[in-house]
Design a protein around this nucleic acid. Structure first.
Length: 586
RNA sequence: GCGCCCGUAGCUCAGCUGGAUAGAGCGCAGCCCUCCGGAGGCUGAGGUCAGAGGUUCGAAUCCUCUCGGGCGCGCCA
């Protein structure tokens, strides 16, 4: 309908151009909004207000000319000039019924569109360091990222979901060494645990498991491990130097092969855990992309070579720097450290180089808000690689604060007292967790109330929406119990009987679904889908309360059943998009 | 100090590519069950859109400044 009105307006603009009222030139963007007030009709355009200045006419005068130039269309019953120059369109009431057969025919495919067809998009999200289980901070990125990806797919984009695995850095060495020390403990060696090591129980679990299945292959005497080490922090030393010395010791004592094996055991254990966790959270990827692979196959060297060739690298203080400040960054960044090792940023340049080489039309990175300072240097790198950095879209996700009722849930990564995503799922369930995470704009700091998320009451929006779905199912069961058979065709023939305000409101809302998905997808705003579903659920509950569906008149009954089945379908499609279940009873 | 995000009803938040009287849920005050699930619905009170300037026919929305809150400013990832 919107498209139709847009066409009509464009024709009117063309006419006015020929008449010399409007100057020739690019067509204006036609803005058509649904009205809030029914007195303003169904749709309104501010076109005359926008063009008034260019035409050097009073907006209302221009609007009159536009209206006069509008072609006649049978579905537009009335066009009005209103307010400062709005053009209001009134749509033929009977045309609104069409939405019902359309929904019933399209079923699960209703709402899908093709506006992104032919475009390849990569969405990279979560990408947490595989040094421990995911926590609730990652949960929001996971929920948000997966719905953004699903939304883009729903509107026709070819979507590639990816998790970047930071399996090459020093943190992973610290993890491997931490597991090794716990393993040595399990073997019966007595040694102190480094203050900078990973202390979580999962480290011990992996170590014990490794000892249990792998025996003593990796065992070395404590005296050898501890021989000539610098002091750890509690003893007045430096914890960084100490842990680095321990890593070096592990490599020496185990030798390259065994060290690599042990390293892989730890990494795989944690990665498998993350994969399971995300899968159970409704998040699946097309690709888990390894940072180490970039190191090993020369991609990092190649990417840096390009930067060097284009004159973006220089040496200072024994390190290699990328002159990112020339390209909008605050300062230059080190890519190769004094000790010859690549920085994380170096592999990230290679990673983005790789993304570009894969030919994506759009590259979406979803990061925690704490990484925002990183954006300019990545953009700088893309430019330096000769790419259009407009292809990169970085979406930031703010942190969520957990509450249990009024009580704030304390968390501290330092002491290891963080709530894991798995704990969250166990407490509130996948559905509520996803729904709550995505309910707010991603750039908004959010308060996540665990108590509310588990409550089975009208205050809980997840249950409220799911309940609307279950309620339709319940009505259909009632139909069965009354030994009535649903007759969709009879209903379709009598849609004109749906004359109640509640009914036409519902049909209007149903007809907004497709455009809601498009808007949500193109703006990367999944919360709009939730807003919509809550609205639809409310209107359904209101309708339910006001009118009886299972009436004796078979024509009216089937017309109403068609309407509520359409509601059920759209609720299901929306919830499915969010990877939230659609229970038939609760 | 510099940069990014945020500040809308008592609370949690929509609305932000400028548009017609600023919305929802919760909470609060009333009300509705011989009726398909009351896990629901209806009505009402409640706002200087943090503040001050500016741009505009029109600003919660755009620009500047101020005040508050969060985050970031490593040869860490």
């Amino acid at each position: 309908m919107k498209n139709k009105i847009e066409k009509l307006l464009l024709q009117a603009v063309a006419t006015l151009k020929t008449d010399g009222v409007l100057s020739h030139g690019a067509d204006p963007t036609i803005n058509i909004d649904r009205t809030r007030d029914p007195q303003h009709g169904d749709f309104a355009s501010n076109l005359a207000l926008v063009l008034a200045k260019q035409a050097q006419l009073n907006p209302r005068v221009l609007a009159e000319k536009l209206i006069a130039a509008l072609p006649v269309d049978p579905t537009v019953t009335k066009i009005e000039l209103a307010g400062p120059g709005f053009i209001n369109f009134f749509i033929d009431k009977s045309s609104q019924f069409q939405i019902i057969p359309q929904i019933l025919a399209d079923g699960p495919a209703f709402g899908l569109s093709k506006i992104g067809a032919g475009q390849k998009v990569q969405v990279e999200f979560v990408s947490a360091n595989p040094t421990g289980p995911l926590h609730v901070g990652h949960g929001r990125g996971a929920a948000y990222g997966s719905v953004v990806a699903d939304l883009l797919e729903a509107v026709g984009f070819d979507v590639h979901r990816e998790y970047y695995v930071n399996d090459a850095g020093r943190q992973i060495d610290i993890l491997a060494t931490s597991i090794w020390l716990r393993y040595l403990e399990a073997c019966g060696e007595a040694l102190p645990f480094p203050s900078n090591g990973y202390r979580g129980d999962y480290v011990r679990d992996i170590a014990w498991q490794t000892h249990h299945t792998g025996g003593n292959d990796y065992r070395r005497p404590a005296e050898q491990v501890l021989e000539n080490l610098p002091l750890d922090e509690p003893q007045g030393g430096d914890k960084e130097l100490y842990i680095d010395a321990l890593i070096a010791r592990a490599k020496t004592l185990l030798g390259p092969t065994l060290y690599r094996d042990f390293f892989a055991i730890g990494l795989d254990a944690i990665l498998d855990d993350i994969k399971d966790d995300l899968h159970d959270f409704g998040v699946d990827y097309q690709e888990w992309f390894s940072e180490r692979q970039l190191m090993d196959d020369g991609s990092v060297e190649e990417a840096l070579g390009r930067l060097r060739a284009s004159g973006h690298l220089y040496e200072r203080d024994g390190a290699i720097w990328f002159a990112s400040s020339q390209l909008g960054d605050e300062k230059d960044r080190v890519v190769v450290r004094e000790n010859g090792q690549y920085t994380y940023f170096a592999s990230d340049i290679a990673y983005h180089h790789h993304k570009l080489a894969r030919g994506f039309d759009l590259i979406i990175d979803i990061w925690g808000a704490d990484h925002h300072g990183y954006i300019p240097r990545v953009r700088a790198a893309m430019q330096a690689l000769g790419a259009d950095d407009n292809k990169l879209k970085v979406l930031l996700v703010q942190f969520a604060t957990l509450y249990r009722g009024d009580e704030k849930v304390q968390m501290s990564t330092r002491s290891g007292e963080f709530i894991t995503l798995r704990q969250l799922r166990n407490e509130v369930g996948k559905d509520a967790a996803r729904f709550f995470y995505v309910m707010r704009r991603s750039e908004q700091h959010m308060d996540f109330d665990l108590k509310l998320a588990t409550s089975k009451s009208n205050e809980n929006p997840v249950f409220y929406v799911q309940y609307a779905h279950a309620r339709v199912c319940s009505v259909l069961r009632q139909l069965d119990e009354k030994n009535w058979e649903r007759n969709p065709n009879l209903g379709l023939d009598n849609l004109a009987m749906l004359t109640e305000t509640h009914e036409s409101d519902l049909m209007t809302t149903l007809s907004r679904y497709t455009e809601t998905l498009q808007k949500a997808a193109l703006n990367y705003e999944p919360h709009q889908v939730i807003q919509y579903l809550r609205e639809l659920a409310t209107e359904f509950h209101t309708y339910y309360n006001a009118h009886q569906f299972l009436v004796d008149d078979a024509k009216l009954r089937n017309a109403r059943l068609n309407l509520i089945c359409a509601v059920k379908q759209v609720l299901a499609n929306g919830l499915h998009l969010l990877s939230v279940d659609t229970p038939e009873s609760m």
